[in-house]
């Protein structure tokens, strides 16, 4: 018999979806800023393999000549970005949700099995988990990246008042590059995330919108699976 299982709390869903407009504005405005000094490129033996970014990219998204506008949006939405991240982390700590998210000693072995499964090498289904090992690594990693963006951002925003931070990150120019690379990281995360959500299917996606997931009797609840996992360590 099917049953409904509560998977994502309203708070989790809010913090999750708030990232969409916040990151969209931060990345868009970040590109408006980056355009004014678009010096990064992948080079091989001195020749440019890929320039961040080709002209068609700026033209397609009308990114050129809007530095002031980019800064105004970036320095407004930075508050929302930071606030959403801090509140989310506090929420996971207070609610205990962090137990499902933070990697533990089984995570790496489990993540390896997930990779084998996703590559079609492991044929048996993965055990039912709210978040499997690969997800734990990804979702904790992306929070660490968020913290990284905040810190590298502050280091280039206030390089004198926060000079200790700028130095810690390798200097003003290094911090700017780190800030940029982290943003590429979000884009990579986003693409893999979308692909995995599509693979996982409608029931999983719907749970992030409505909170509940359709489960089948006989399957352990996520809490039971979590406890069993802890017991099995």
């Amino acid at each position: 018999m099917p049953r409904l299982e509560r998977k994502h709390s309203p708070a989790t869903r809010f913090f999750h979806w708030a990232n969409v407009p916040i990151l969209a504005v931060m990345i868009w405005s970040g590109l408006l800023i980056y355009w004014a000094n678009d010096v990064y490129a992948i080079r091989f033996r001195g020749t440019v393999v890929f320039h961040f970014f080709p002209d068609w990219f700026y033209k397609t998204f009308s990114l050129g000549r809007h530095l002031g506008e980019g800064m105004a949006w970036h320095f407004a939405f930075m508050w929302l970005f930071a606030l959403n991240g801090v509140l989310y982390v506090l929420y996971t700590l207070i609610s205990g949700e962090w137990r499902y998210l933070v990697p533990n000693r089984r995570t790496f072995a489990e993540a390896f099995q997930v990779v084998l499964h996703d590559l079609g090498i492991r044929k048996t289904p993965l055990p039912r988990r709210k978040f499997n090992g690969a997800q734990r690594l990804a979702y904790t990693g992306v929070i660490a990246m968020g913290l990284g963006s905040l810190l590298t951002g502050l280091a280039i925003y206030k390089p004198v008042q926060l000079g200790w931070l700028t130095r810690l990150l390798g200097g003003y120019e290094a911090a700017r590059l780190e800030h940029f690379i982290l943003t590429l990281g979000y884009v990579a995360f986003f693409l893999i995330h979308i692909a995995q959500v599509i693979r996982a299917g409608w029931n999983n996606f719907r749970a992030m919108v409505i909170g509940v997931e359709l489960a089948v009797d006989g399957e352990p609840t996520y809490e039971q699976a979590e406890r069993a996992g802890i017991a099995a360590k």
């Binding site: 099917p2 049953r3 409904l4 979806w17 719907r206 919108v209 409505i210 909170g211």
Partner: peptide, 23 residues
């Protein structure tokens, strides 16, 4: 399917409608 199954489905449809409307 039993009445309970239909009840679960009804509940899910309701939640889905409401969730996607809010979203």
């Amino acid at each position: 399917p039993s009445d309970d199954d239909f009840e679960v489905e009804r509940q899910l449809r309701r939640s889905t409608r409401r969730g996607f409307a809010v979203g």
